[in-house]
Write a protein that binds this DNA or RNA. Structure first.
Lengths: 199, 199
DNA sequence: CAACTAAACGGACCGCGGTCCACTTATGTT
DNA sequence: AACATAAGTGGACCGCGGTCCGTTTAGTTG
């Protein structure tokens, strides 16, 4: 079994020097645009122009706008992953699996609160919404916690169903449009987990 | 309290004759395009052209592509709504609320199986994904069933969380990409409901 | 029937995501 | 150092969703 960590891109076929430089330029440009003018201002043309490269290069590096957003989130994603795999309880190993599940949801909600817009933009594509490696890691993490908690049943699907209410698009809707607080969402998550894992 | 049914559009300010005629033309054209060449072929230009009207008219009638898709689904949506409000058990009133919840999920899954592509296209916009009247009806239906089942807690959020795994985009992913069967999804739904409503 | 007005119409126009391909360049080999 | 080639590059180009606004028309009023 290979490492469950997010694959380090280009480990086997390393990027050429100029390509790597342009990746950095593009990521910096994109991050700057987000900070200055919001996610909507991050058009592929704008990023390319700001980075001083051609539009084609942006697509070559990131495949799509969602891919670019995903790359922007990569750091945060890895941090979360590190935390629940190797970090301290209750998120990391050592704590009761149910508490870990609850902490996991809280951590995700916190991320959505901060990076919600970017997350939503990243979710706007099928491949990155479900087929992304980060998602696969989350699913298998939840599956293993469910198993560890002694839950019986279709772990795979149960994990998918539990992850669904944490999707950025929905959470943002609840926060912004319905005016719910993160605390309330956190409480509801905890309640949901306790119900599902009870008995 | 007003009728919980989907509002009959244009009841107060009736549509002009030509407008109503064009709406029909457009809906027929769109349905035909879906049947003949799939959802992706339903571009706003194509629909307009096929109906023999201008593009602006399509947008005036339906607001956006998602709106058009939503209109295409309206009939099905109303049917489901009728069924769970006035139809026979287990979907309709009379059955145990938990059984009604389970039946509701099964009904939705069946719809996704048949109209999945159109549903997904309709979900591609924020306003129609969450702010659509049909969704509000579903949410309040689930809320009332949870209440009737004697479930304690944050019904509103619990309903949202339960509805999330029924979203077309996710369900289609599970069916197509992960190769799961509708039966399996149905079983998982039933299991989820039983867990959540237990105790 | 003529005049009036609010509604509907249509298509030119815009910006964005995404593709394509002729051209350039970094890197390893002899 | 010269070469070969795989990788990278850039910008013209495309199609689509969505907007805008000058024009047309349906329904009403006297």
């Amino acid at each position: 079994m290979t490492s469950p960590l997010l694959p380090q891109i280009g480990v086997d076929t390393p990027e050429r020097g100029d390509a790597a430089r342009n990746r950095r330029l593009l990521l910096d440009a994109a991050a700057l645009l987000v900070a200055e003018r919001g996610v909507d201002a991050v058009t592929m043309d704008a990023v390319a122009c700001r980075a001083g490269v051609g539009k084609g290069t942006v697509f070559r590096r990131f495949g799509s706008r969602s891919g670019l957003m995903h790359a922007l989130l990569d750091h945060t994603e890895r941090e979360l992953q590190q935390s629940f795999m190797f970090g301290p309880p209750p998120l990391g190993p050592g704590a009761d699996p149910i508490d870990r599940l609850i902490a996991f949801g809280h951590a995700r909600l916190a991320i959505v609160e901060v990076q919600g817009e970017v997350l939503r933009a990243a979710e706007n594509s099928l491949e990155f919404r479900f087929a992304a490696p980060a998602r696969a890691v989350s699913v298998s993490h939840v599956v293993s916690l469910l198993r560890a908690a002694g839950v019986q049943g279709d772990h795979e699907l149960l994990a998918c169903s539990l992850l669904a209410p944490l999707e950025a698009t929905l959470v943002l809707h609840e926060l912004r449009d319905l005016g719910m607080s993160v605390e309330r969402l956190g409480d509801a998550w905890e309640d949901l987990i306790r119900r599902v894992t009870r008995c």
